[in-house]
Lab assay of single mutants.
Amino acid sequence: LKGYACRHCFTTTSKDWHHGGRENILLCTDCRIHFKKYGELP
């Protein structure tokens, strides 16, 4: 998807986009997986 950027690491290239984190922000796949695993963003 074009025009998306992770609100945590600011990458614009991700296989998928997810809403997550404490504020339900837009996250890339890597940040979301880390959040689900550790309960915090990298």
Rank of each mutant, 00 (worst) to 15 (best):
C28Y: 01
E40H: 09
T12R: 08
I33H: 14
F35P: 02
A5Y: 09
K36W: 08
D30T: 15
E40I: 10
L41K: 04
R7H: 02
C6P: 00
W17P: 08
H34I: 02
T13I: 04
Y38N: 15
K36Q: 15
T11S: 10
Y4L: 09
T11C: 06
Y38S: 13
A5R: 14
G3P: 07
T12M: 05
K15T: 13
F35R: 05
C6E: 01
G20T: 04
H19S: 13
R7Q: 14
T12N: 05
C6F: 00
C6M: 00
S14W: 01
F10W: 11
T13Y: 06
D16E: 08
C31F: 09
E23N: 10
F10S: 14
E23H: 07
R22H: 06
G39K: 14
G39V: 02
G39N: 14
G39C: 08
Y38D: 09
I25W: 11
N24H: 10
G20M: 06
I33M: 13
E23F: 01
I25Q: 10
A5P: 03
R22I: 08
W17S: 07
E40L: 09
K37W: 09
F35Q: 11
D30F: 03
G21M: 04
K36A: 15
T12F: 04
L41R: 03
D16A: 03
G39F: 02
I25E: 12
G21H: 12
P42D: 00
W17G: 08
D16G: 03
R22V: 12
L26F: 03
D30I: 02
K15D: 10
R7N: 09
T29W: 12
L27F: 02
K36F: 15
T11L: 03
T29E: 10
Y38T: 15
P42M: 04
H19P: 12
Y38H: 09
T13Q: 12
T12V: 03
F35N: 05
Y4A: 06
R32A: 13
G3F: 05
Y4P: 05
G21T: 10
I33V: 15
K36N: 15
Y38R: 10
W17N: 05
H34M: 06
G3V: 06
K15W: 02
G39P: 02
D30L: 04
R22F: 11
T11Q: 04
G39A: 09
K37H: 07
G21S: 11
C9R: 01
I33F: 10
K2G: 09
L41S: 03
K2W: 02
N24K: 08
Y38A: 11
K2Q: 09
R22G: 12
S14N: 02
W17D: 07
Y4I: 10
C6K: 00
L26P: 06
H19G: 11
C28A: 00
K37S: 11
T11E: 02
L26I: 13
C31M: 00
G3R: 09
E40C: 11
R7K: 15
L41P: 05
S14M: 02
L27I: 07
R22N: 13
K2A: 09
N24Y: 05
T29A: 11
H19E: 14
S14P: 03
F10P: 04
D16K: 08
F35W: 13
H19K: 12
K36E: 13
K36V: 12
D30W: 03
P42E: 04
H34K: 05
E40A: 11
E40W: 05
F10Q: 14
K37Q: 13
H8P: 00
L26Q: 03
T13W: 04
D30Y: 11
K2N: 12
T11N: 08
I33E: 15
I25V: 13
L41F: 15
G20W: 08
F10D: 10
W17R: 05
L26H: 03
R32M: 13
A5C: 14
K37A: 12
C28F: 00
Y38W: 11
L26C: 15
H8F: 03
S14V: 02
T13R: 14
H19I: 12
C9D: 01
R22T: 14
H18W: 06
N24C: 03
T11D: 04
C31T: 00
E23Q: 12
H8L: 01
E40S: 11
F35D: 09
N24I: 04
T12S: 06
D30A: 09
K15Q: 12
